[in-house]
Simulated scan of single mutants.
Amino acid sequence: MSGPLLTPDRALSRALVRTVPDSVTERLADLGNIPVAVPVLALAMAYAARRGRGRAALAAGLAMALVPALIVPLKDWTARPGPLEPWAAGYFPSGHTATALTAYTCAALLIAPDTRRPWPQALAALLTALTATGLILRGFHWPLDVLASLLLCTPSLLGVRAAASKRPGRSGGAAQARPPGGRVSGQPPK
């Protein structure tokens, strides 16, 4: 294994691995497990669909389905060993990070229109950061494994954001502005 980023990646990993008790870092890393993160997304998808945002829910489900379709072939192709298991391969990029980022961010995007506050996005960022921190500190992944997953998932999340920002029932055309009385000119009063 070689490359210009390998030396700083190894140095950073050596400085960080096992600086926090394993019992803590394992719990943090578990936030990126499929049985933990995906049910959060599934609940948010059901909520969004019930609120008339089925297209956004579908986009979020597609983004989650893209995670293994993107990550698994890259793991096989790169065959990068892990920090604590140099004999094993398939660590780059981090599937747990990709799962956490996608599930929690999509869930936040799906419920955000009804909250009108930044806490869903902040919580998604926190859960993803905790997952990534746990993975690195425990030695399950190199720092660049985590960074690569964050970058690889960003385009699909931007697509979900675009789908979630569209208001249901809009055809995409310009809506008529309503004056203070609530009527559009030319329409009879109700």
Rank of each mutant, 00 (worst) to 15 (best):
residue 122 A to W: 13
residue 41 L to G: 01
residue 157 L to T: 01
residue 115 T to I: 14
residue 25 T to K: 04
residue 75 K to Q: 15
residue 134 G to R: 00
residue 23 S to E: 13
residue 52 G to H: 14
residue 163 A to K: 06
residue 38 V to Q: 08
residue 39 P to H: 04
residue 99 T to L: 09
residue 152 L to C: 02
residue 22 D to N: 10
residue 107 A to L: 12
residue 139 G to I: 14
residue 99 T to D: 06
residue 7 T to R: 08
residue 81 P to E: 08
residue 31 L to N: 06
residue 170 R to H: 14
residue 98 A to Q: 01
residue 52 G to S: 14
residue 29 A to F: 03
residue 84 L to W: 01
residue 30 D to V: 03
residue 109 L to W: 08
residue 60 A to N: 07
residue 8 P to C: 04
residue 3 G to I: 10
residue 190 K to T: 12
residue 9 D to I: 03
residue 128 T to L: 07
residue 188 P to G: 13
residue 176 Q to S: 08
residue 98 A to C: 04
residue 123 L to R: 05
residue 137 L to W: 15
residue 146 V to P: 03
residue 19 T to G: 12
residue 156 S to E: 12
residue 52 G to P: 14
residue 185 S to V: 14
residue 19 T to M: 02
residue 16 L to C: 12
residue 73 P to I: 02
residue 36 V to K: 05
residue 108 A to Y: 06
residue 77 W to Y: 15
residue 132 A to T: 00
residue 122 A to N: 03
residue 86 P to C: 09
residue 34 I to Y: 10
residue 10 R to M: 07
residue 35 P to F: 13
residue 90 G to V: 07
residue 175 A to K: 12
residue 32 G to I: 13
residue 36 V to F: 14
residue 91 Y to P: 01
residue 47 Y to S: 01
residue 47 Y to A: 12
residue 98 A to Y: 01
residue 99 T to A: 08
residue 37 A to V: 09
residue 103 A to Y: 00
residue 38 V to T: 10
residue 134 G to D: 00
residue 114 D to T: 11
residue 3 G to C: 10
residue 45 M to F: 00
residue 163 A to L: 08
residue 54 G to R: 15
residue 141 H to G: 04
residue 130 L to K: 06
residue 8 P to S: 04
residue 91 Y to K: 04
